[in-house]
């Protein structure tokens, strides 16, 4: 059950990305192109996701522990720092340039579009560089 639930969660996530159209970078970029070929679909994806996670998270957190672990690993930081804002701003530029964020890019990997094969290794390198340049990060990295 333990392993199956994780595999199932990954499969659900990828299927959701494909069904929603978010595995298609053109659709993401069209959401971001207000003054061109605007496609509002992405707002419905976030809306659909949050409509499930908001009540779902609330219900889950009524439990004292998760099903297969001793503790919930939730981010605890509430401070604003430059890394949050600069990091998010940098992420947004890359997201706009390629139309890919990490989930859709990895989901697209087996489809082997040439652009994806350039994007994913570069993304992994970018992550490793960020980890090397950072001070030891707290566990709440897992946002």
């Amino acid at each position: 059950m333990h392993v199956f639930s994780t595999l199932f969660a990954g499969l659900l996530f990828g299927t959701g990305l494909i069904l929603s159209g978010m595995a298609n970078p053109a659709k993401v970029q069209n959401f971001l192109d207000l003054f061109g070929t605007w496609d509002p679909s992405l707002a419905f994806v976030m809306g659909g996701a949050i409509m499930v996670t908001m009540p779902g998270f609330w219900l889950v957190q009524k439990r004292i522990t998760p099903l297969f672990h001793d503790v919930f690993h939730l981010p605890t930081r509430t401070d604003f720092d430059a890394r949050l804002v600069v990091g998010a701003a940098t992420f947004g530029i890359g997201w706009g340039l390629g139309g890919f964020c990490p989930g859709p890019a990895l989901t697209s990997l087996p489809l082997a579009a040439s652009g994806t094969l350039f994007f994913v290794p570069a993304m992994l390198v970018g992550m490793v560089i960020a980890k090397y340049t950072a001070a030891p990060l707290p566990k709440s990295l897992a946002v």
Binding site: G98, A105, A122, M127
Partner: peptide, 10 residues
């Protein structure tokens, strides 16, 4: 794009 997404998200 990949470098910026990877670096920025971490």
């Amino acid at each position: 794009a990949g470098l910026l997404v990877g670096f920025g998200s971490v």
